[in-house]
Design a protein around this nucleic acid. Sequence first.
DNA 1: AAAATTTATTAGGCTTGCTTAAAATAGATT
DNA 2: AATCTATTTTAAGCAAGCCTAATAAATTTT
Lengths: 229, 229
Amino acid sequence: MKYSASKENYLKAVFHLQQAQGTVSTNALAAAMQTRAASVTDMLKKLKSQKLLQYERYKGVKLTAEGKRLAIHIVRKHRLWEYFLVDKLGFGWEEVHEMAEELEHISSKKLIDRLEEYLGFPDTDPHGDPIPDNQGRMRVSKAVQLQELPVRTTCIISHVGDQSAEIMELLNHLRLTIGTRLEVKRKFSFDQSLEVMLPDESLITISQHLSSNLFVKPEKNLALSGPES
Amino acid sequence: MKYSASKENYLKAVFHLQQAQGTVSTNALAAAMQTRAASVTDMLKKLKSQKLLQYERYKGVKLTAEGKRLAIHIVRKHRLWEYFLVDKLGFGWEEVHEMAEELEHISSKKLIDRLEEYLGFPDTDPHGDPIPDNQGRMRVSKAVQLQELPVRTTCIISHVGDQSAEIMELLNHLRLTIGTRLEVKRKFSFDQSLEVMLPDESLITISQHLSSNLFVKPEKNLALSGPES
DNA sequence: AAAATTTATTAGGCTTGCTTAAAATAGATT
DNA sequence: AATCTATTTTAAGCAAGCCTAATAAATTTT
Ligand SMILES: [Mn+2]
Ligand SMILES: [Mn+2]
Ligand SMILES: [Mn+2]
Ligand SMILES: [Mn+2]
């Protein structure tokens, strides 16, 4: 069975939205797809008739097992192509999302499996998001928002919360990328901004907007660690 | 300006057909596109209104300079992706045409220029067809049909006449590929078949149908070469 | 040159994916 | 409970790309 690029994009959008919310609203989908609610309703009827999602009018929407399987396969293709573009063709992580948005619709399963092998079975894409394997299995991230860490915690940047070139432009400027180690030095209650220390011991300030979109893996909490001998 | 995959396919088909014939007929295009003549007429009107081709009813069709420029760019993408699939991902030359038929519609110009660089600026695709450069320049092949060579000529296979998996299946079986050196030993007037010698001195028979789809570059004509001392 | 045949175009209709405007339903407010 | 408001659906229509059937033009045959 082959589906249009438009249907694949809808499935992917429902998949991402139902990670955050449980069930997905028509308006949320319209916003994500940059289209109108009426168009979404039309498409939901079609996808329902193909048994790719559960949908009752006025009740929101959820993927079926088959819909989810397909959505994950699109995500897999998207992330493998992004990895290719950065790792092999030398693009910056802020440039690749748009191209992957097209490449993810190339249909050959064999092509994507060969590409994955060629790339050396990468675990995550250039933005730190996990790449599903060819069975659709996907590692679950234990990362938390940088915003939520207490002062004096050391952590490593694991992924970014959205795919916009804007957030990556800012991170490039601040010399922050996936894998960068940070220590949270101060939190300002006035605007929820953070002061963090980089590996070179320089200090930078991070807005609440940015820190809520930066996901990190905590390393250790210096405040709670026992005294060194 | 961005064009649909369908329009790009039409432009490419007109381009290939007008290489052989000068001007292209509606029916020839319908056959090449695997569609109906009525659909072709519809599309020709649209492409004409976009000034991509010259078209007068009942008079056939020819690309404009802009149409040709676009068509060559699609051909460039098609062949670079084919090269990638064979050289980097290890596909056989008989497997890649279908995938390239989709990949050629990926729009990013920067992507294809980076890919070309990554591949080392190949001259020809896996089937021996020339790859246009990023200015649309394309080497002209001096190859001739194997069928046309006189007996005792040595030659090197330069490209195949169509993109079907069937011809490549046969060539794989006969251990013939781009770059293989052949000597025409005999021509049979009954069915126009040829007997040719391979580099390992084995002899094989080649049908007229195959030899008219095999393009070669003549090396030297042994019959005319002077006596060795 | 007329007739027959081939080739191409027009007419009318279908599906997909989208739009705006109007109507219906659900949820919140009084 | 009635009313207001936000959300969602329905209705009607458009463009792209295809189809079949009918018609017209060009070409070949007689
Ligand atoms: Mn992405
Ligand atoms: Mn996409
Ligand atoms: Mn194509
Ligand atoms: Mn080719």
